[in-house]
Amino acid sequence: MPTTHLLYLHGFRSSPQSAKATLMAQHLARHHPEVHWWCPQLPPSPRAAMELVRQGIADWPHARMAVVGSSLGGYYASWVAQQARCASVLLNPAVDPARDLVRYIGEQSAWHDPSQRFYFRPEYVDELRALDTRGLPPAGPEFAIIAKGDELLDWREMVARYPHAKLLLLEGSDHGLSDFAAHLPAVLEFLGLAAAAA
């Protein structure tokens, strides 16, 4: 069944203006205007971010929805998929952000608009830990796109985290998947949206 509701979760310091989110939004608007697309600006608090998402998808048909997440958004996407029992697409997903983001405690600037600043508080690390779904079986189909060229996250750790996922392992690329346009057709096929994509 084709996806009718699609949630996109951006990464740490990122925004709905990310290149991947923008590319997906433009493609859906052009080829699949019937799909309900939502890419919210996530607050820095993981608990607040997931509460925003939980409220936003409360009325969505879980059997026909999917979530796409990049980096920290991929970590969040696995939590959302567990809650909604839905399909997920994981783009260089963070595996243990509670470990990795400790060094970012303090004031941070937004990637797409450095004038926008936020404070990553120490308690957010515990909030991240509370969202960890490692050890749980997948709640729905998973598709992971993982780049060996990721300069921030260890591709081996990502691959090991998602043993049941359909896997597209890229020999090069980078953390932001700057070649995402080349892989968008595979994402659309996974979401059941490839037929009318031409």
Rank of each mutant, 00 (worst) to 15 (best):
H32T: 06
R117T: 15
D154Y: 00
I146F: 02
D132H: 10
G192D: 12
P138C: 03
A25R: 14
A194V: 04
R85E: 09
H164R: 13
P122L: 06
E127C: 02
W111L: 15
W79K: 00
A94I: 01
Q41N: 08
L91R: 01
R30T: 14
C39T: 12
P141T: 13
F120A: 08
L168A: 06
L131E: 11
S14E: 10
S178I: 03
T133I: 01
G135M: 10
A25D: 02
W155C: 06
P46R: 09
A94T: 03
R117N: 11
P16V: 10
A94H: 02
E151K: 00
R121N: 11
F180A: 04
A160T: 04
T133R: 11
A110P: 04
P163S: 12
L6G: 08
P16Y: 06
Y162P: 05
F190L: 01
G172T: 14
A182W: 09
L52E: 10
Y124S: 03
M65H: 03
H10N: 08
W155V: 03
M24D: 00
V159P: 09
G192R: 05
L177K: 06
H32Q: 01
H10S: 04
E127N: 07
L170V: 06
I145A: 11
H36I: 13
R117P: 08
H175V: 05
L191M: 11
Y119M: 13
S45Y: 08
L167H: 14
S14R: 00
L91G: 09
V67H: 07
V53P: 03
L23A: 15
V80D: 00
H32P: 01
A182S: 10
K148G: 09
P122A: 09
L72H: 04
Q108R: 12
L167C: 09
P44F: 05
E151N: 04
P122I: 07
V159R: 11
P185Q: 03
Y104I: 02
W60I: 07
T133V: 13
P33H: 02
A29D: 15
G69M: 03
Y104N: 11
A182T: 05
P137Y: 10
A160S: 08
A66M: 14
W79E: 00
A110D: 14
L72F: 06
G74Y: 13
G69S: 04
F143P: 13
P114V: 02
A186K: 06
A196T: 14
A144R: 12
D154C: 07
S115A: 15
A130L: 03
A21T: 07
H36T: 15
L131R: 12
G149L: 08
R64A: 15
S71F: 04
L128E: 05
L169V: 09
Y8D: 06
V53Q: 02
A110Y: 13
E171C: 08
D96C: 13
K20V: 05
G106M: 09
